[in-house]
Design a protein around this nucleic acid. Structure first.
Length: 213
DNA sequence: CTCCCGATAT
DNA sequence: ATATCAGGAG
């Protein structure tokens, strides 16, 4: 079976397993999703949701973050880790929103990735979920790991992995595909202890050594 | 490549 | 104790 066929069957199986897969970060508008996604770096989204519950009540507009006291904002996001970088990114990024975008979150890849603390992964999350205009595929730690194990990509580089996946997955599936793979990564194909014995797609998986990458 | 970094599971 | 969690910047 070639890689295109395996990818097709892999996603078909995930669709059956996770027909309702969606973004698991809590948000009600593009700004909230932007902030939540910045906070989600190397942090479980359940924890991000705990933090944003209070954060979104306190900071309602981009100008609120832009004008925030940095040390107070650091305390507000502290439990998500990397809190100094994240607070700085949110403040500086929201200052840009106010100055360059009228306080709104832009909807193009170039404008999004020009913001402080926003890379391709974060931009893809916003474009796909807040604007329903995916320009690519979200490659986070789960998607990257599973693309390697499934040999959909031959290199760890997230940008190259994304390109490889874009060739294998139909564009209209891009956003939901990431959600499905992330759920699959959390529940079955974990980084440390993958559940190969009970894996629903083990017949499509070429990863021979189930104990290491 | 390294650094940023707390919370959680094992 | 250690690895991992919806990464990005220098």
């Amino acid at each position: 079976m070639n890689v295109a066929e395996r990818a097709k069957k892999f996603d078909a199986k995930l669709i059956k397993l996770y027909p309702d897969a969606k973004c698991s970060l809590d948000y009600n508008n593009p700004l909230e999703l932007l902030v939540a996604t910045i906070l989600s770096a190397q942090c479980a989204d359940a924890r991000v949701n705990k933090v944003t519950k209070d954060l979104f009540a306190k900071y309602r507009k981009a100008a609120d973050y832009a004008g925030a006291d940095i040390e107070e904002l650091e305390r507000d996001v502290r439990s998500t880790g990397f809190y100094r970088n994240k607070a700085k990114a949110i403040k500086s990024c929201c200052a840009d929103l106010v100055v360059k975008h009228g306080g709104k979150v832009p909807d193009t890849m170039d404008e999004l990735t020009a913001l402080q603390g926003v890379g391709r992964k974060t931009a893809n999350v916003i474009l796909g979920n807040a604007y329903n205009m995916a320009e690519g595929i979200v490659v986070d730690t789960h998607v990257g790991r599973i693309a390697l194990r499934m040999q959909f990509s031959s290199v760890k580089n997230p940008d190259k992995t994304e390109k490889a996946l874009m060739e294998l997955i139909p564009k209209k599936e891009w956003t939901a595909f990431s959600h499905r793979v992330i759920l699959f990564g959390r529940e079955t194909c974990q980084a440390k202890k993958p559940q190969c014995a009970s894996c629903p797609v083990t017949n499509l998986c070429p990863w021979p050594d189930k104990t290491s990458d």
